[in-house]
């Protein structure tokens, strides 16, 4: 992840001078400036991957001009960036034509392609139902962020795919659903059915646990065990759903407030007390 340091540098984006921090990526700076750069394999919570190639921008460093992935490319002093040059648009268009041929039914791909004037692709489609663009976010969030590694890449080249090893139910998947949340195309999906969470894409079923307060199933047993393992021993794990947790937190806060209000009552004015109560 980009580290923000005190070192400020100057770059030029589409002819406009801008300030950036050493360690930032081109994408971060450009987005801050309100530039429209599409991404598919990028997610703030995961390390840059530079695989989908729709975020390409044109940079000039010295005499060299090249297309680079903005999601990963670090800014440097004097860097000149073009986010919408002819070369950028041409390259994105080719990439989108290829993705459209791969995933003709993916709304995300179809919409993005349309924005670049691609409404049909010259290339054939192998599987009209394919929705995975191989951005790898599910695999990366599972292994790099959560440290679970239930899913992975298999094979290579055009045969590359994401999935569970040997295409059989995973013994280690905790059913946390992070893969579902980060998937940009909806390829990865899960369904909660009674006390069972079905990770459809990974052919894996997990038992759900009921909230200690409201009794609704809210998280998988394995997920809670996983979190338990990450917490220090003395910290208790409440097996409570997010909704109940939120209302409990509100409850606690208002109790705390009333104590504060009681204590402050003598010194604070009436307006201050009303403000605190409204929290």
């Amino acid at each position: 992840m980009a580290q923000i340091t005190a070192d400020s540098i100057n770059i030029t984006v589409d002819g406009e001078l801008a300030e950036a921090q050493v360690g930032e990526t081109v994408l971060t700076v450009c987005r801050r400036m309100g530039k429209d750069i599409p991404t598919l394999c990028h997610h703030e919570g995961v390390e840059p991957y530079a695989a989908c190639r729709v975020c390409l921008v044109e940079v000039t460093a010295g005499a060299r001009q090249e297309l680079v992935p903005s999601c990963q490319y670090p800014v440097s002093d004097g860097l000149v960036i073009q986010t919408d040059s002819q070369a950028v648009r041409d390259a994105r268009r080719v990439v989108l034509e290829l993705l459209l041929a791969r995933c003709p039914k993916s709304d995300v791909v179809v919409d993005l392609a349309r924005r670049y004037g691609v409404t049909e692709t010259p290339y054939p489609t192998d599987d009209p139902d394919e929705t995975c663009i191989l951005c790898g976010l599910c695999v990366r969030v599972c292994e790099d962020v959560l440290g679970v590694g239930a899913i992975g890449f298999a094979d290579r080249g055009i045969d590359r795919e994401v999935g569970v090893p040997f295409d059989e139910a995973s013994e280690v998947c905790i059913g946390c659903g992070a893969c579902v949340a980060v998937c940009p195309t909806g390829h990865v999906c899960s369904i909660d059915d009674g006390l069972v969470r079905r990770m459809e894409t990974w052919k894996t079923e997990l038992e759900l646990e009921e909230c200690e307060v409201c009794g609704r199933p809210f998280a998988t047993v394995k997920q809670l065990d996983h979190i338990r393992g990450l917490l220090p021993e003395h910290v208790p794990l409440n097996r409570i759903c997010p909704v109940c947790r939120r209302s409990q937190a509100v409850q606690r806060l208002s109790e705390a407030c009333s104590i504060v209000v009681d204590n402050l009552g003598a010194t604070a004015g009436q307006d201050g007390i009303e403000n605190l109560k409204s929290l």
Binding site: A51, V54, I158
Partner: peptide
């Protein structure tokens, strides 16, 4: 190259397949 592409980035993975096609 179709056999040897790692399959990570879109243009190489999908593009080579289509050039071969």
């Amino acid at each position: 190259l179709r056999e040897e592409s790692c399959g990570k980035c879109t243009p190489c993975r999908e593009g080579i397949k289509n050039m071969l096609h």
